[in-house]
């Protein structure tokens, strides 16, 4: 198991290294002069030259790359051209909110996706299967920003059950502010027993999390259904019923454990896709995460920020897949051998 982990980790590091190169080259070939972004469109030429020198653009590309790589390791990811503050700081204050949203969405997606998939596979072709497949296709094909608006109209506008935007109500930030423990706001409110903030934060989390979960949930439900149907046709499932084991045990334990590894592959891919999905959802729900910052950075050609966000996204993808690999190895002894 350790060797398995080490080899997967080694691959991940290698991929990340290659990616720094790709990100760097891309940042140098995209149109738009960073010096102009930094100084503003009306800056005189000598001012631009001074900024280029300051930012290191006058040096050979290879030197720039080595400097960039060195900066990545020493925690200097460059300054945002738009806010002039270190990119790493900008991300650090926004990432926890995004991760909380992402985690909540993936949790919803995995739990409900798997359950719906197993239920649909119980009676393929029947009404319940049709309903679940319709929901799954709807979840996959509905654009997140549109679903988000619809949910806001229904649950905020019509029913008034849930708050529309933000991570906490403004009053909460005055009455019962969240103390800093881990930096993850909702988690901190729970850890410090700040129930006012926690319940308020949960209420704020529901709509964006559901919006974000729709796509991965649909994918996971469909994959689980297909994979369960295949597993249910296997000899060992027949053996289990021939030995009189109960249907519930066969489906939810014996068959599902076989059906999960292919589903987990989809979970890894969906998690990465969902990470980018947070960008839209955060804008719709005014969520204080990296999504809004990322959208701003792209519009402003704030290339240090774009590079940092790209690397972060790639790291997230690699971590998600590493976790998936580990879960698969845990579920299926044969994976550990390969």
């Amino acid at each position: 198991m350790l060797r398995f982990l080490a080899s997967r980790l080694g691959t991940a590091v290698l991929v990340l290294f290659v990616l720094t190169l790709v990100v760097f080259v891309m940042s140098r070939v995209i149109p738009g002069d960073p010096a102009v972004v930094y100084a503003g469109p009306k800056a005189p030429p000598e001012e631009l030259a001074r900024i280029r020198e300051k930012l290191g653009f006058d040096q050979p590309l290879i030197v720039q790359y080595v400097n960039y790589l060195g900066g990545l390791f020493t925690g200097d990811w460059g300054n945002s051209l738009a806010t002039k503050r270190p990119v790493l700081d900008e991300l650090a204050i926004r990432l926890p909110a995004t991760l909380e949203l992402l985690f909540a969405a993936m949790l919803l997606a995995v739990v409900f996706g798997v359950v719906l998939g197993v239920v649909a596979a119980k009676r393929p072709g029947r009404a319940i299967d049709g309903v679940i497949r319709f929901l799954a296709i709807g979840g996959v094909s509905m654009p997140a920003f549109w679903l988000g608006l619809l949910l806001q109209v229904l649950f905020v506008g019509r029913l008034g059950w849930l708050p529309a935007t933000g991570q906490f109500s403004t009053e909460v930030e005055y009455v019962s502010p969240v103390a800093h423990v881990t930096g993850f706001p909702l988690l901190d409110s729970l850890l410090t027993g700040n129930w006012i903030a926690y319940s308020d934060g949960l209420a704020h989390l529901v709509l964006p999390a559901v919006t974000l979960a729709a796509y991965p949930l649909g994918l996971i439900a469909r994959m689980t259904r297909a994979s369960m149907l295949e597993v249910l046709g296997q000899d060992y499932v027949f053996t289990a019923s021939a030995f009189g084991l109960r249907d519930g045990l066969i489906r939810w334990k014996l068959a599902l454990k076989n059906a999960l590894p292919p589903t987990m592959t989809i979970v890894g891919l969906a998690a990465a896709y969902t990470l980018t999905g947070t960008f839209f959802v955060e804008v719709v729900f005014n969520w204080p995460g990296i999504g809004q910052f990322a959208v701003g950075a792209m519009l402003a050609v704030d290339y240090p920020a774009i590079m940092a966000i790209t690397l972060l996204g790639a790291a997230g993808y690699l971590i998600a897949n590493l976790v998936v690999d580990l879960i698969q190895a845990r579920l299926d002894p044969r994976v550990r051998l390969s």
Binding site: Q234, D235, Y236, L254, D332
Partner: peptide
Amino acid sequence: NPGTAFNPVF
């Protein structure tokens, strides 16, 4: 077929 009659993940 004993090779397929047992559940591979238990």
